[in-house]
Computed example of a mutant assay.
Amino acid sequence: MENQQTPVKAGLNAGLILGIVSVVLTFLIYFISPESLASFSTGMVILAIFLGALIFLGIQYRKSIGGFMDFGTGFKFAFIALIIAGLIGIVGNFLLYNVVDPELPGVLVEAQLETTMAMMERFGAADAMTPEQIDEIRNGAASNFTLVGQLKGFGFALIFYGIVALIVAAIIKKRDKSLDY
């Protein structure tokens, strides 16, 4: 019998690939335009690339195990890949924010604050903001760039990863219809 990869091992490999791609994209965007890292549209583009790559890797894994995969196997594969990629992303972000450019978190906080204030102005709520509330928003955004903030964010991201893994598993699963009676 052929030696098949387990969903855990395949997920680890896929997570390693996705994590490295994520870090490379982040650094590439940083070198092109650091403020873009705080952009919602940039985040959506990266998410779309990430999701497409995860689905592609999942289909490749399914092909490598005989062309069929149940939902549970697909979920394990995707969830493990997302966890590993997320951990690698935290390491990459930590290096970016603390080694490569320690001033970057301040730039990103200000960019996020400007975006938040512009959105609040569109809803007519910006005038109601006190300087203390603005400082609170700024401090909250700044805390997201610390290692503790990144780890906290990863904890919340696990819920998102679970939902994404469910969606990806539904896309990459394939039932062997020849087994139906």
Results as ranks from 00 to 15, higher is better:
residue 171 I to G: 04
residue 128 A to G: 02
residue 168 V to W: 08
residue 136 E to P: 03
residue 10 A to Y: 00
residue 146 T to K: 01
residue 94 F to I: 07
residue 176 D to C: 06
residue 48 A to E: 11
residue 152 K to M: 15
residue 148 V to Q: 15
residue 57 L to I: 06
residue 74 G to F: 01
residue 31 F to D: 04
residue 28 L to K: 03
residue 14 A to S: 13
residue 57 L to Q: 05
residue 170 A to D: 12
residue 35 E to P: 00
residue 20 I to H: 06
residue 124 G to Q: 10
residue 87 L to C: 09
residue 159 I to S: 04
residue 2 E to F: 14
residue 111 A to D: 01
residue 63 K to V: 11
residue 94 F to E: 15
residue 89 G to I: 00
residue 152 K to A: 14
residue 132 E to C: 03
residue 151 L to N: 08
residue 63 K to I: 12
residue 30 Y to K: 05
residue 66 G to T: 01
residue 82 L to T: 00
residue 55 I to R: 05
residue 132 E to P: 07
residue 72 G to F: 11
residue 102 P to R: 01
residue 168 V to T: 08
residue 1 M to Q: 12
residue 105 P to C: 04
residue 99 V to P: 04
residue 128 A to M: 15
residue 137 I to H: 04
residue 107 V to C: 02
residue 137 I to R: 06
residue 68 F to A: 07
residue 160 F to G: 12
residue 152 K to W: 14
residue 44 M to S: 06
residue 1 M to T: 10
residue 150 Q to H: 07
residue 157 A to G: 09
residue 169 A to V: 07
residue 68 F to M: 09
residue 118 A to V: 03
residue 168 V to F: 09
residue 154 F to N: 11
residue 139 N to C: 03
residue 178 S to E: 15
residue 2 E to L: 14
residue 176 D to Y: 05
residue 66 G to F: 09
residue 110 E to S: 01
residue 157 A to D: 12
residue 3 N to Y: 12
residue 105 P to D: 05
residue 26 T to C: 10
residue 41 S to P: 01
residue 52 G to V: 11
residue 134 I to A: 10
residue 174 K to F: 06
residue 140 G to E: 11
residue 74 G to Y: 02
residue 74 G to T: 00
residue 173 K to Y: 05
residue 181 Y to H: 13
residue 117 M to I: 15
residue 181 Y to V: 14
residue 17 I to K: 05
residue 60 Q to H: 06
residue 147 L to I: 13
residue 40 F to T: 14
residue 20 I to L: 15
residue 93 N to Q: 14
residue 11 G to I: 05
residue 81 A to M: 09
residue 126 A to F: 05
residue 131 P to V: 00
residue 97 Y to P: 00
residue 51 L to P: 03
residue 102 P to W: 01
residue 50 F to L: 12
residue 117 M to R: 09
residue 29 I to A: 12
residue 6 T to C: 07
residue 95 L to W: 08
residue 133 Q to T: 07
residue 7 P to G: 02
residue 159 I to T: 06
residue 112 Q to I: 00
residue 57 L to V: 05
residue 34 P to C: 00
residue 136 E to T: 14
residue 122 R to P: 09
residue 91 V to P: 08
residue 173 K to G: 04
residue 163 I to T: 06
residue 18 L to S: 00
residue 173 K to V: 02
residue 149 G to M: 08
residue 24 V to G: 07
residue 66 G to C: 04
residue 82 L to H: 01
residue 2 E to C: 03
residue 13 N to S: 10
residue 37 L to Q: 04
residue 1 M to G: 15
residue 67 G to Y: 08
residue 132 E to D: 15
residue 117 M to F: 10
residue 129 M to A: 11
residue 151 L to F: 13
residue 52 G to P: 08
residue 167 I to G: 01
residue 36 S to F: 07
residue 66 G to K: 02
residue 117 M to N: 03
residue 40 F to S: 13
residue 40 F to K: 13
residue 114 E to Y: 01
residue 144 N to A: 12
residue 65 I to W: 09
residue 155 G to R: 07
residue 99 V to L: 14
residue 98 N to K: 06
residue 108 L to E: 02
residue 146 T to R: 01
residue 167 I to V: 15
residue 124 G to A: 08
residue 178 S to W: 12
residue 137 I to N: 07
residue 115 T to M: 10
residue 95 L to T: 03
residue 164 V to Q: 07
residue 143 S to M: 15
residue 68 F to G: 04
residue 155 G to N: 09
residue 130 T to G: 07
residue 86 G to N: 08
residue 39 S to E: 14
residue 131 P to C: 00
residue 177 K to R: 12
residue 57 L to N: 02
residue 3 N to G: 04
